[in-house]
Design a binder for these strands. Structure first.
Length: 284
DNA sequence: GATGAGCGG
């Protein structure tokens, strides 16, 4: 919440407030009063001297321990004689960012306990469980990650809470990302393959020497058509080529041509083995 | 001979 009041200063009041020489303006102040932060500053509006009072409702603030500690320091240097708190003359007060917490502390704790209990009861076989729908898959942006396949169900307290206007739900207390709110357009497809690697025009090229490089493969393959992605399997530690790689062509026809030409082709004293890449299978 | 990495919890 933010309220701003602008008040023209009458010269009498003005004189009361100004203890400074010349036409200088009084220093801005910042006061915190029962849940509101009141910022008062003075400025010229043309010839008029104007007092601007702004009130912010303070919802909840993030306090960092290090900031708290820093605030206990004694002022030093040119600020040694300043009063406590920020001196608006030397401190730029940027727009404060207030966080609105949608989950309460109590609920957080409860959730943690729940999680622990579940872990205990599940024992060793507690493989993967979606945090959103409890399905047997990683949460990774769930909603309802491939739905029926997920084997999960939407918890009751997640049902029917929404609001597509970017505001947190009124009925629920959990944050629902816009993409998951009622009425949101579902982008994710129900077809599991839609969101996976598409190997339709990908070749697997094997029997490569240990010192093969991506560049080499690219050169080998480029002439057949545009390449979308090229992967050369390498040993994670040594970095040596594991002897195979994948080329995703933009067009299947190009891939076919490349396969035809390159399969059995001699490269660095080795005979290449080229075939369609078999789509990686995935267990849901 | 080998069917790509990594992020979780």
């Amino acid at each position: 919440m933010k309220m701003t009041a602008v008040e023209e200063l009458k010269s009498s009041r003005w004189a009361d407030e100004v203890e400074l020489e010349g036409g200088a303006l009084p220093l801005p102040t910042e006061v915190i009063e029962n849940g509101y932060k009141i910022l008062t500053e003075y400025k010229f509006d043309g010839e008029k001297k104007v007092k601007v009072v702004r009130m912010h409702k303070i919802e909840k603030r993030i306090f960092s321990k290090s900031i708290a500690v820093r605030k206990t320091w004694k002022k030093f240097g040119e600020s040694s004689n300043d009063k406590p708190g920020p001196n608006p003359a030397t401190t730029i007060i940027a727009e404060d960012v207030y966080m609105q917490y949608i989950t309460s502390k109590e609920e957080d704790n409860k959730q943690e306990d729940d999680g622990l209990d579940k872990l205990k009861s599940l024992g060793e076989k507690a493989a993967v469980k979606c945090r959103t729908c409890s399905g047997e898959h990683w949460t990774t942006h769930c909603p309802w990650r491939d739905t029926a396949l997920a084997g999960g169900k939407v918890p009751d307290d997640k049902k029917g809470i929404s609001g597509t206007n970017g505001e947190p739900s009124k009925t629920g207390n959990k944050y629902i990302p816009p993409s998951l709110r009622e009425g949101a357009v579902r982008i994710r497809s129900d077809n599991p393959n839609m969101n996976r690697r598409d190997d339709a025009s990908a070749l697997r090229i094997a029997n490569l020497g240990e010192d093969t490089t991506e560049q080499e493969i690219e050169d080998l393959v480029k002439p057949f058509g545009p390449v979308q992605k090229l992967f050369l399997a390498r040993d994670k530690i040594t970095g040596a080529c594991k002897g195979f790689g994948y080329i995703h062509f933009k067009f299947k026809g190009d891939a076919a041509k490349a396969m035809q030409k390159l399969h059995g082709y001699g490269h660095n004293h080795l005979i290449l083995n080229v075939d369609w890449s078999k789509p990686q299978q995935h267990n849901n």
